[in-house]
Computed example of a mutant assay.
Amino acid sequence: MDAEAEYNNRARVPGSAEIIATWMRDAEAFRTTWTRKRLDIRYGDAEPERLDLFLPEAEGPCPLALFIHGGYWQALSRSAVSHFARGLLLNGVAVAVPSYGLCPAYSLRTIVEQIRRAAAVLCVTTHQRMLAVGHSAGGHLAAMLRATDWPDFAPGLREDVVPAILPVSGVFELEPLLPTTIARALDLTAAEARALSPRFLPPPGGEVHAVVGGAESDEFRRQTRDFAAAWSGTAEEIPGANHFTVLDPLTDPAHPLTLRAAAMARRLASL
């Protein structure tokens, strides 16, 4: 296997830089025009530990989702993906979009702790459980949230902070990344890569629906299938979608993937 070719999505997808530039413009426009929002909320002391919370147009109680950006834990921020909250918002689901520290300035283990802190703060302040949706590295972080022992992380916290996840093009096994250029900034040993791989953690139960693009590499598609099977979840391929366009459905409130995510979030709010 050519691991670099399988996992280096920016090199693999023609026009990836233009796609990400479009994300940045669309995200900025969305943040400007969406009226019900709370921007730049601190969830920790470090500078990157901030999130934006977008609320549905209708006031009143609503389900909650957390959308975690990708970038192989070393690129992007919440400002690149705000617009992917649109579909869920138009289905009545509030969406929190956090930033986190990036490698190599922050270790991957620290990033996991930051995202856990974001979810814990949201749970305490909103008194709600949440669906975690994440793209690429964010899919990995969503899975790590589901695997968290929450009372151990923060005494007094409920056990089911994140009972359900919908990772999109997630990375669930980190060891295959080690021989690639992607791993340089991560600075992981083989043991650390294994310990931080959700695929090999004890299955925590709950609802798991893993999504991948039908035009993604064999390894990304394999990882999604194997992770879903290991955690007794379901897997779905979006026909024709690459590692970046796989997120496009989330801007459409009527797309089946958006409707599925909204239903997952509503189930959490009703229990």
Rank of each mutant, 00 (worst) to 15 (best):
G233N: 09
R225F: 11
P198A: 09
D226L: 14
V133L: 15
L178W: 06
G214C: 08
S107Y: 04
R116P: 10
A5P: 13
V95R: 00
F227D: 06
E57A: 15
D252P: 11
S82C: 13
A96V: 02
R78T: 08
A75G: 11
D45T: 13
A5T: 13
T22P: 04
E175V: 12
L141I: 05
T181S: 15
F30C: 10
L257D: 06
F67N: 04
S217W: 00
E219S: 14
V162M: 02
T22A: 15
V93H: 03
P202Y: 02
G214R: 02
L259Y: 00
A210N: 07
L141F: 10
T125P: 08
D218G: 14
A5S: 14
V112R: 08
A58H: 05
E207Y: 04
L64E: 01
A228Y: 09
S99Q: 01
P176H: 00
T125S: 14
L76F: 14
S217L: 03
I68Q: 03
P249R: 00
E207Q: 14
A11F: 07
L55M: 10
E236K: 01
T32V: 07
V95M: 07
R222N: 11
I115P: 04
M24P: 00
I41K: 00
P179S: 04
L53D: 05
V168L: 13
V97Y: 02
A215F: 05
A65C: 10
L268Q: 12
A193Y: 08
A3G: 00
H140N: 12
S197D: 08
A185Y: 01
V208P: 08
V162P: 08
E216W: 00
S77A: 15
A118K: 00
D52Q: 04
L145G: 09
T148P: 10
R116T: 03
P61N: 03
S79P: 00
E57L: 13
A210P: 11
R42H: 13
W34E: 06
G233M: 08
S169E: 02
V171P: 13
A142K: 00
R184S: 15
D252M: 01
R50G: 03
W34K: 04
A261P: 03
A154C: 13
A269R: 06
L257I: 09
A185H: 06
Y7W: 14
E18W: 07
E28H: 12
P104N: 04
A46Y: 00
K37Y: 06
G15H: 07
D248K: 08
L131H: 07
L196Y: 10
I68Y: 04
G170C: 06
E47W: 00
